[in-house]
Design a protein around this nucleic acid. Structure first.
Lengths: 184, 184
DNA sequence: AACCAACTAGACCAGTCTGTATAGTTCCCG
DNA sequence: CGGGAACTATACAGACTGGTCTAGTTGGTT
């Protein structure tokens, strides 16, 4: 039985899910506590930095999860266009499964909190950077190109989530080859 | 002195700016009131639907503003790639001017409120649709392609705002030709 | 002048927010 | 068995939330 228990971990997990679906300001600490089955005292014991610290860790966790998933896709798929299409499918599946509640794990928080909290902003930047790095690694290290691919994907997820329709994902998917400038 | 006064208009304008920069949940009605110089009673006189109605109208206003600006750019610039580059510059200027507080006028709200309010979601969809329409009109009516262009722009603005760096905008700008599939 | 709609003003309410304080429990170690 | 750290549990605080209510003011019309 670990002393430094899994309660802490569970809190971060719960917070990550809630922030993912609702954003920073729309998610109350009470909701995180209730859903994670923990009282207030525990929260401020584990996260003396309060909501902000919890958000930073939640973002890092969510970023890591997606980064791992992305890496798995890219490592099992040599052709980058095909790999990106698979990545889009991954995000599309999640959107559909959650009735379009969960798109990009961090962009809601990035938009609604990173202007007022520098630590949160930095966590979001790290997240985007990590994903972009995975993409760039499989695009001959072309960072600018990876930026464009990431932007197109993020934008597509944003549109798909708002419209409740996967079409933007597919549109971007079919145009990825042109975007990347390969014929494959 | 106009009877159906400009107070109402001013409220929508203020709300639009605040929602733009901070999102839905981070923006309190009191802040809108204070910044717009109006008391609570007036708000619920002009907007019986409360915060939600105010948001819907603010989104519509912001959408219209950008739509007009986009149309102006496209009508004065025959080449669509060049026009999109100008549009990116427009958004980049605003980002820089506002110290990266104001990116896309509605995407923050789209992400942090459209899941819980159907009217707000619909207003956001209309906004995206109107912008996409302008783009498609100058892309031989290719709607899917316009979707990709819009997604890339939205994603670029999101990344630029979070990173506090216009590079993503430029990266997308230089790749637009490939994205659109034209040599011009 | 009288009237009525349009509109303003702000007090007020109940609920929620993040955050604090403190008493209690659990669990390992000696 | 005893002591102390790790952790939980809950009550509470103060500020702020969106929203309601009613009294008052303004201004055009007859």
């Amino acid at each position: 039985m670990p002393r430094r228990t899994d309660t802490r971990r569970r809190m971060v997990r719960t917070a990550a899910d809630l922030f993912h679906a609702q954003g920073y300001h729309a998610t109350g600490l009470n909701q995180v506590l209730a859903e994670g089955g923990a009282p207030k005292g525990s929260l401020y014991f584990h996260f003396p930095g309060g909501k902000e610290q919890l958000a930073v860790e939640a973002i890092a966790l969510a970023a890591d999860d997606l980064c791992t998933a992305l890496r798995a896709v890219f490592e099992s798929t040599p052709d980058p266009v095909e790999a990106l299409t698979k990545a889009l499918a991954l995000l599309g599946d999640r959107l559909e499964r959650t009735d379009f509640r969960e798109g990009c794990p961090i962009s809601t928080v990035a938009l609604d909190a990173s202007a007022e909290s520098e630590p949160i902003r930095e966590a979001c930047v790290s997240a985007y950077d990590s994903w972009q790095q995975v993409i760039a690694d499989h695009l001959d290290g072309d960072d600018a190109l990876a930026t464009v691919a990431l932007a197109a994907i993020e934008g597509a997820v944003l549109l798909a989530r708002t419209r409740r329709d996967l079409a933007p994902l597919h549109a971007v998917g079919t145009r990825l080859a042109a975007l990347i400038g390969r014929t494959s």
